[in-house]
Every structure is written in C-alpha cells, then in structure tokens.
Design a protein around this nucleic acid. Structure first.
Lengths: 214, 214, 214, 214
DNA sequence: ATCTAATCGAGACGGTACGTCGAGTCTTCCC
DNA sequence: GGGAAGACTCGACGTACCGTCTCGATTAGAT
C-alpha cells in the first residue's frame, strides 16, 4: 500500500475557469464540460470511499467514464483534481453562534463544529487539510477561503461581547480562537481521542475558565 | 505489525539490556542494535536531504549499510521507520521538561516543541500529518509510534506533579495535553498566525490559567 | 496467463495486420510490436550472455529499453518470455522442413534440431527442461509455448503428407513425433551417448522404418 | 513463485562420508549422524510435497528440527542436500524382463518402467533428472549409477536374443534402447501426453516394427 | 459539403518504488 | 566444538501507480 503521493505539486494548480474563456474558442471540438463535472464528482466519491492514498487516477477515470488523458489535459496531477473536487464541498457549515451569551456562544459553536466534522464531511475536511500541507497554492486558498473568513466572523461576535463587558478588553482574540479550535483540530488529525459532544463541552469549559481568571 | 519500542529512551548505541529484556532474549542471534540505530540515523539523513515524499526504503537501506529485509523485519512499512526516526530525535533533543515546577515544565515543553517545528523537521512533520490523513496504515503508525508515546511521557510527569500537589487530582490530563498542543498544531497546519516563542509563551500562560481555577 | 501468439511467424518488425487481427483491435493505443520484438531479442541476448539461471527480468527490460510492467503485461512470468524468445528463434532458424518428401522432411528436421541443441542454446534448453520439472508454472509455459506449438507445426506438415498418400492415414502422429524427438531428448538429458548428425540420421532411419511397415 | 534455483552448483558436491571418518575425530562434539539422517529424510518429504522449486532450506531445516547452519555445514548448497536425498531413493526398480521372447521382453520392460514412473517415485525421478542438468558432478553420477548399469543389463539380454537369432546381428543396441526409452522420457519430462500402459504398448509396437524390417 | 483542429474514450508505455521471498552467512547461547 | 535459533546481507521477484503517449472516433467552426 502506497503511503506517499505528494511528489511535485509545488507548482501552482490551474483551476480558474472563467466564463469568458469560451470567447477565445478556436476551431476544434470544445471542451466537454460534462466530462469535467463527472470527473470531479467521481474524484470526490472515490476519495470518500478509499481515502486519498488509495485514490488512483485510474479509479477516478473509470468511475467518471472518462480517460486518464482527459484528466491530465485539464489538471496537472492527481492532487489538483482531488483538491478542486474538495474545494467545493468544504465550503459552508453552520454560521458562528450569536446568542448574546458568551458561554453559550462558545459551547454552541464548538458543538456545531464537532458535529460538522463527524460524518462524511469530516473525512473530506481531513483530506482538505492534508492537501494544504503539500501545496503552497492550496494552503493559501485554505487560509483565505476557509480559515480567515470564519475567524473574522467569530472575532466580530467576540468584539461585541467585549463591548458588552462580557469579555475583558485585553483578551487576545486570536489566541482565544486557537484555544477553542486547536484541540479539536488536533484530535481530528491525530486521532488519539474521541471527538464528540462531550469533548466539545470540555474544551469549551476549559476555554472559558482560562478567560474568567484573566 | 507496528513496532512498539517504548523501552529505552537511551540516546546512544548502548546495547545494555535492562532486566525485562533478558527475559525475552531466547536463543539465536540477537537483534543487531547497531543496525537498528544505523537505520534510524540513515532514515533521518535521507529525510532531511530529499524530504518525506522522496524518501525510499532502498535509499535508507543503502545508506545504513543494511538490507531492506532487515528494515521490513522490524518495521511494518516505510512510514513506521521514518516516524520512529524523527520521534527518537525529538525525544532526545526535546525531552519533556521535568524541572519540578509545573509552570516551568509547561513553558519549556511548548518552547521546545515550537522550536522543533521551526526548521526542516517542521516541514517533515507537516508531511507526516498529511500522510496520516490519507493512509490508514500511516495514521496508525503515527498514533502508535509518535503521538501516544509522547503523551505517555508527558502524563507521567504530570502525575508526579499531582502527587506533589502542584496539580489538582481531578485534572483531565488528556484534555490538558490537547489544550497545550492543539493550538500549536492548529497554527502549524492552517498557518493563519505566527508560530514562535511568543506564541508558545501565550499558549502556556493560557493553559496554566485554565488549570489554576479548576 | 499464458500468451498464445501463434499468429505471425514473421521474422521482422512488420506491424502489418492480417484480416483477423483487425477484428481484435479495439480502441485504445495498440500494442507496440516493436517493443515486443525488442523484449524478445533482449531476452535472447541476456540468455546467451549470462545463462538461464542468471537471467533477470530487470536485465531484459533494461536492455530492451522497455519497462518491467510491459513485460509482465504480456507474459505471465520470466520463464514465459525466455521460452518464447528461444522458441521464436528456433522457428525462424529451424523451421520444420517442408520439402514435399516425407523422408527428407524427417531427416532435415532431426538434423536441424540436433544442431540447435549443439551450442549455447542446447545448454539453455537443458536448463528449461530442468526448470520445468521443478516448477508447475514453468512446466505449463514450457508445454504451451514451446512443445505444443512446435508439434502443431510438425503435425500440419504430416497431415499434408497423409493427404498426398506418402503417409498412411492411420499413423498416430503423436506417437510418430515422440519416436522422432524422444531419443534425442533422452541423449540430451542423460548424456549417455553422442548427440550429433550421425545419431540424428540413425533416429530418422529408424523412425521411417517403423512407418513403412505399418 | 520462483522459477530458477540452479545458480552456482557447478562445483562438485561433497557427499562421500566414509565410515572410518569417526577415527580421526578431533576434540569437539562429533558430528550428529542422527541430524544428518533427519535432514535427508526431511528433504525428501518436502521435495515430494511441494516440488524442487518450492523446496526451501528453511522448510527442510524446520521439518528436520535442524538449523540451517547445520545443513550448510555439511552440504555446499540446497541442491546438494536434495540430490543426496534423492540418490538413495531412485536406486532400484524392477530388473530387466528376461522371458526368452524378444517381443515380450520389450513390452514387459516398458510396462514396468512406466509403472515405476507413475507414482511418487516418478516425481522424485523427474527431480533427479532435472538436478543432473545443473550439476556436472551429479550428471556424472546419474549416468554412472543409474543409466549405464541398466543399459548394460538390457544389452546383455538383447545379445542373447541376437545369439538366438531373434534379433538381427547388425542391430544397433544403443539405438534400440534409445528408441524404447526415449519417447517415455520425453513424455515424462515434457508432459505433452499421457504416460500409461497404452502408451508403453504403442512404443513397444513401434520399436518392434522398426526392428523387423531392418 | 468538405476540411481541419481540438477533444474524447481506451488503453499500452517507461519509470520508480513498493513490500516479499529465498539463499547462504553469521552470531549468540546451550550442551 | 557441534548444534538450534534466528537475525543478517544480497538480489530478484512480481505488483501498483504515475504521468505520457498513441490510436480511432467525435464534434464543431472554417473554407
């Protein structure tokens, strides 16, 4: 069983497909957008079923009813296909809780995130993070499109808690968010312990304790 | 089959056998500990030079002056060798701090870990985590040969702090460790913020605050 | 899976496709007949230089400028390649005589076979037979890829002699072939007597005598 | 599944074990003759069960309750052990038939030989012949100890038939014997057709036909 | 109504690494 | 010093996957 797959994806991945590209269409047969879609769907299915390491381009091609040549014509390598497939799936989860009560917000948010990770989206999300470790361009996208917007959303809410006095002004929000999410990411990726509602509760409690004393 | 090897954290080539090791020594030629050490060292060198993805068992074997068969006799696959090699080095270069002072221990440990992650070993470590997400066998090795032994090491020290009364008896050590390491893993993998001594200090402070109130 | 390939005894690199070959040509890149030829030639060269026991698939692949995968796509194992390579050469250098005269055909064929066995290919052939005794898979290849095709070739010619009336209809061709080749195999393997043109002549004479009276 | 095993047995095989060797016994523990016997018996058993190609020294050692070192101390390689083990088993079969009637003698002899080959001794005999192809020393022994004595025996009987006038004086007995045994050896080793009483009968008939007309 | 060029499915190809297996050697302890 | 146990080096095996390539068949815009 092969373990490594991330050879030379240091180069940027061509994913952008702007609509106006059809304008410059030359003479020949136009790109088959159906095939493209089938390939991405197939990639996601295979990925979910067997994991990244056991995902082969042959398997994707076969399931998509496409040929490997078609895959490699449009994506530079296996990782690029899978990553583009993942990108669409990991887009949205529940918005940050905003009940007006700090303790409640934290607990609800952690509960929701753990729920999101438990289930098939968790598997995909793990693959998503893994992919980001191997490809700088994808890592950038991971931060910009996923991590940062969600942190901004959370920080806005925490800012309101600060204004209400529920949260001390001098609390480092970056650190607070790391304290909340870090342990959950850790268990997700290292798998050394259960990742369930109880754990979410404990992490929330601990986070809150570290705040109250400050 | 994974190779559990939490017997001796001795840093050198000592063939010294502790009492319980003589028990399992039957007849026949004993395991060549020198070869074992050479293999781990070679793995580390290859890892450093060509990166995780380009590390091959043949290269390790050749550099170690050992045969592939010997590698596969003692480690279930390439991943296991590489993981153990790196973990050994960490245990050696960054043993869990044991100064007798809880606060100090936590800070020192986090400083050491962040330092470890800054540099080429950090890149390798990220590759490990990525690989673990993709391949169940690798994930198992990663947990068994890296995560769990390190945690055991830390928990023993915390247990002593509990006995001394520096730490409340009812503290959940698993949770404590997640609180310490989680934020660091998070920044390592998501890259949304700096991963330096200051951050380590902040995480340590926060962890300790959450303990004092409990 | 053994590769039956009794289609074209063409001695060169012709990619010419006969009528029934187009039938099995589906879509996709067609088999590279040049590579196939190169592999068989390389096998023969390696065989000659280092002997059967020291012939490796890697060596054949490298010399042929092919990949091992290609070899194993078309031949079930090393033995099959080597057997086919040698058999092809024999069919080419020593095609079954077809002069129209039965007596002549038999004598020429036995002369050619004895000549073949005298020299390096005789040594290789002995190694083949030895290997066939020890390994069922090899034995199967040896029968399918060597013995049977050669016998079919001969039987076709004998059938024509039957139609011309030179050979009685009730002659058992299997037995006839055993009578011709058996004594030669016997001396080759047991080495109890000379294996030369005189012997071939004598065996031919004796075989013919046994036919005339029948 | 490995096919080849005959690497470097071109060197002569040390088998001689004269009884007076015990006289020159030195200081240490004397050779364990029981172990030697066990090894040879084990070799024969393994050989019969799995064939030469699948016979491993480990398997022999394990079954014999011996160690590989002991095997290699007394035999130069795997072939040497197996050959010595075989040598004793293939020693005797039925003596050449001598009924006074030439036709009868030939048929009886061929029947007996085919019977001998059918059954477990046939398997061993095949391995015996195969071994002779790879080792000159063993080939010599095969000829001297097995082939030639039996041919002499047969020739004596045929000489008496000549004196009685049942056989023409000018018949080449060597050739006659090759005609009788060759086809049987051929089928035994190439396995392209049945090797049974019917075949023996046919070969006998054919041999006799070739004689009568001469 | 062709011609021409880009695209598609299929699948063979060179290459690289994998993990396994067997041969024959060596090292320890036991007798 | 022989023998059992078993770890070691060496080298070939056959497999798997990657990314490239070459076919014949499609599919439009250009001529």
């Amino acid at each position: 069983m092969s373990v490594v797959e991330s050879l030379s994806n240091s180069m940027s991945i061509e994913v952008k497909e702007s609509c106006e590209e059809t304008a410059q269409r030359g003479r020949g047969r136009p790109r088959d957008e159906v095939a493209r879609t089938r390939i991405l769907e197939a990639a996601l299915e295979v990925l979910q079923e067997v994991g990244f390491a056991n995902t082969t381009t042959d398997a994707i091609a076969e399931r998509a009813g496409a040929s490997k040549a078609t895959i490699y014509r449009w994506w530079s390598n296996k990782a690029a296909v899978v990553i583009e497939a993942l990108r669409k799936q990991v887009s949205r989860d529940t918005p940050f809780a905003d009940t007006g009560d700090l303790v409640n917000d934290i607990h609800l948010q952690l509960q929701g995130f753990v729920e999101f990770l438990t289930g098939w989206r968790g598997r995909v999300f793990k693959a998503f993070i893994a992919a980001a470790q191997n490809d700088p361009a994808f890592a950038e996208s991971f931060r910009t499109d996923w991590i940062l917007p969600r942190r901004e959303e959370a920080k806005e809410i925490f800012e309101r808690h600060k204004e209400r006095g529920a949260l001390a002004k001098n609390v480092d929000l970056e650190l607070l968010l790391d304290a909340m999410y870090g342990p959950i990411y850790f268990r997700l990726l290292a798998g050394h312990g259960r990742l369930d509602a109880d754990f979410a509760k404990s992490v929330g409690d601990m986070t809150i304790r570290s705040l109250v004393t400050s």
